[in-house]
């Protein structure tokens, strides 16, 4: 067993362990911090595949931006009382494990039934992971999707502000919305 393989197994165990901890911790803040660890171990796995730029972006975008946003919302809503919720029997947990296990079995069988025809990493794998190669492809072949994504991000920013605004002022809003708003005002006042 080569040193690289040992390192891979260690990081894989870290990734799986932190993923399991994320979905089992009852405290959402602890779950979010385990998810940060999970994203960091995935960034290390990207380095195995010589995708340097994506490893850095994984840390910046996921472990940085998205997780800070999630932690911010958790603390804004002051969630942490889930431990006090009564534990009750959930039949859907059993169904989740059964059908999820079936899916996993299917994937494992599908992946191992036929030997994959690429035993070694491609010779130019180290070249295509660099920022120069990615940028050249992104601004030539994929220029239109790139611009479309910029538009998507703009729409997401506007949508997030509208949704998170204190009061939703919709001209011609339905009666239900107005009832909810009135109830809200009474709750505040």
């Amino acid at each position: 067993m080569s040193g690289e393989l040992i390192l891979f197994v260690l990081i894989a165990i870290l990734a799986i362990g932190s993923a399991v901890a994320t979905i089992t911790r009852r405290n959402p803040v602890a779950a979010a911090l385990f998810l940060v660890l999970h994203f960091a171990s995935l960034a290390a796995l990207y380095l195995f595949l010589s995708a340097q730029v994506l490893a850095v972006l994984q840390i910046l975008v996921y472990a940085g931006a998205i997780m800070v946003l999630i932690l911010f919302v958790i603390m804004l809503l002051n969630l942490g009382k889930e431990e006090q919720l009564a534990e009750r029997f959930q039949p859907r947990a059993i169904f989740a494990l059964i059908f999820g296990g079936l899916l996993l079995l299917f994937l494992v069988v599908a992946l191992t039934a036929v030997p994959i025809a690429y035993p070694e990493m491609a010779a130019k794998a180290a070249e295509i992971g660099t920022i120069g190669a990615l940028a050249r492809e992104l601004f030539t072949t994929y220029l239109f999707p790139f611009e479309a994504v910029s538009l998507l991000l703009l729409v997401a920013v506007v949508g997030a502000i509208v949704l998170a605004k204190k009061k939703l002022e919709i001209p011609g809003a339905s009666v239900e919305t107005k009832v909810i708003q009135k109830r809200e005002e009474q709750a505040v006042g």
Partner: peptide, 23 residues
């Protein structure tokens, strides 16, 4: 790898809108 870049961008947009919906 280009597709992963796009997935990351969409995930960021999804995070912003999804958390606003939760709020």
């Amino acid at each position: 790898q280009i597709l992963v870049l796009f997935v990351m961008a969409v995930a960021a947009a999804e995070a912003a809108v999804g958390l606003a919906i939760i709020l």
